[in-house]
């Protein structure tokens, strides 16, 4: 039987006695898992993370981290978690090395060992050259990586990242994906919130969708992707047909003078579309997905819940 990294049961959070951010959510994260926690802005993602990491006081319910309740074994629970928050939250005046070594100290790691670990983790995240640079002088991507380094310095069993790639360029985002994938392979459980659904699809094995303070989906990524029944493609063509054919349940739409959109239900071969276009002497110069597949499902699920 696998160990639960996080167990959340009937968790409620009401801010100021008025705004209900969490309406009694329950979900588990298995040890070694890579979970995406998705939801629109204000859905309750950051509140959930805040409660797990004891930055937000819960109203009711229970949270356990590797079996340690945050109500009566808070220190043990905290030792298991590394948090990468959404906003930069380190001192602007301290250097990278000071930030990471001090954080290790808060977890009781002796100074000498903390300095050794800091060298390893800062090198892994390509920040070692910047170790004596005050954090305010780092670029946005470096600051994100510094927060990951800081979160890993006490070797947590679970890493929680709240939108870690927000505002970073594609190259850095992809290198962070590789880093996180490798970290997960080495056994660290990872929980990630993100607005980039492509990121969730690429990285995570499980997905939980939260909307208006409620968990509306909690399943494997494979399962949720299998529920997609229609994919939309954009085709760039050299001439526009006079009218579109009726092929099974395929729907055609004209986008502009040189491109069309085609909705293709699952199980229908793309060859049918290309055969028809060939018959019409229409050349296809390029083809692409209109939108991220997960995004479509996400919009559908959150719309249904609303």
């Amino acid at each position: 039987m696998s160990t639960k990294a996080i167990e959340i049961h009937d968790l409620k959070k009401i801010y100021g006695g008025q705004f209900t951010a969490l309406k009694g959510i329950s979900f588990d994260v298995e040890e070694g898992d890579f979970l995406a926690l998705l939801g629109p802005n204000g859905a309750g993602k950051s509140t959930t993370i805040g409660v797990i990491c004891s930055l937000v006081n819960k109203t009711s319910g229970s949270v356990k981290v590797f079996g340690h309740s945050i109500d009566n074994e808070l220190e043990a629970a905290k030792r298991c978690i590394g948090l990468v928050p959404q906003e930069f939250n380190f001192s602007q005046f301290e250097t990278c090395l000071q930030i990471v070594v001090n954080q290790a100290g808060y977890y009781g790691v002796p100074r000498k060992l903390a300095t050794q670990r800091a060298e390893v983790v800062l090198k892994q995240l390509s920040l070692w050259e910047k170790r004596n640079t005050p954090s305010r002088e780092l670029s946005g991507g470096m600051k994100r990586r510094l927060m990951i380094a800081r979160a890993l310095i006490h070797e947590p069993k679970i890493l929680i990242l709240d939108e870690p790639t927000a505002g970073v360029d594609i190259e850095i985002r992809r290198s962070m994906w590789e880093f996180l994938t490798e970290l997960n392979k080495q056994g660290t459980t990872i929980v990630l919130t993100t607005h980039y659904l492509e990121e969730a699809e690429q990285l995570c094995r499980r997905i939980a969708i939260i909307n208006q303070g409620e968990i509306i989906e909690n399943t494997s990524m494979k399962d949720i992707i299998s529920r997609l029944d229609v994919e939309t493609f954009v085709l760039d063509i050299d001439s526009m047909p006079e009218k579109f054919p009726e092929i099974n349940s395929v729907t055609f739409r004209q986008r502009d003078d040189t491109s069309i959109e085609v909705d293709i239900p699952k199980g229908i071969s793309l060859n049918l579309i290309f055969s028809w276009l060939s018959e019409q002497n229409i050349q296809v110069s390029s083809m692409r997905n209109k939108s991220n597949r997960l995004e479509e499902l996400f919009v559908k699920l959150t719309e249904n819940a609303a």
């Binding site: 990491c53 004891s54 930055l55 808070l74 220190e75 043990a76 905290k78 030792r79 978690i81 948090l83 928050p85 906003e87 930069f88 939250n89 380190f90 001192s91 602007q92 930030i99 001090n102 954080q103 808060y106 977890y107 009781g108 800081r150 006490h154």
Partner: peptide, 18 residues
């Protein structure tokens, strides 16, 4: 106050320092 303002106080709050 500066730790509160910059939110670096969270470094201590998430850690097990009594």
């Amino acid at each position: 106050f500066s730790a509160k303002f910059q939110r670096s106080i969270e470094e201590m709050l998430v850690s097990p320092v009594p």
